[in-house]
């Protein structure tokens, strides 16, 4: 039970953090689960401005309940999550995106 093993899925390479080995569960049970290395979409696609008018892009970060998708799920880096948030809030003010789905 030595604590670390590498996340499967995408092979290494590339910069940034990401595929740091994951701690095994506390009872040492093996989880044969692949965890895809998460990549910040904006870094990967080199999208520099996250614009509130770009509803198509923003929509991919609001799941059904219309809440903002958390970083731990989307894999967005901190800087881009901040920018995404302001963009989403602006879009919400203009009723381009919902605050909530009924």
């Amino acid at each position: 039970m030595n604590g670390r093993r590498h996340a499967g899925g995408t092979s290494g390479g590339g910069r940034g953090r990401g595929a740091q080995g994951q701690q095994q569960g506390k009872d040492g049970a093996r989880r044969p689960m692949f965890r895809r290395r998460k990549i910040c979409k904006f870094c990967a696609e080199k999208i520099d401005d996250i614009n509130y008018k770009d509803t198509k892009l923003l929509m991919s970060f609001v799941p059904e309940r219309a809440k903002i998708m958390p970083r731990r799920i989307s894999g967005t880096c901190a800087m881009h999550q901040r920018k995404l948030r302001t963009a989403l809030m602006r879009a919400r003010q203009l009723a381009l995106l919902p605050y909530t789905s009924e």
Partner: peptide, 21 residues
Amino acid sequence: RGEFEDERDEDDRFEVTEDIR
């Protein structure tokens, strides 16, 4: 080709999308 590379043309970005939940 990168994993995320796709042909996103710039004009497409601000297009009006119908399904706003």
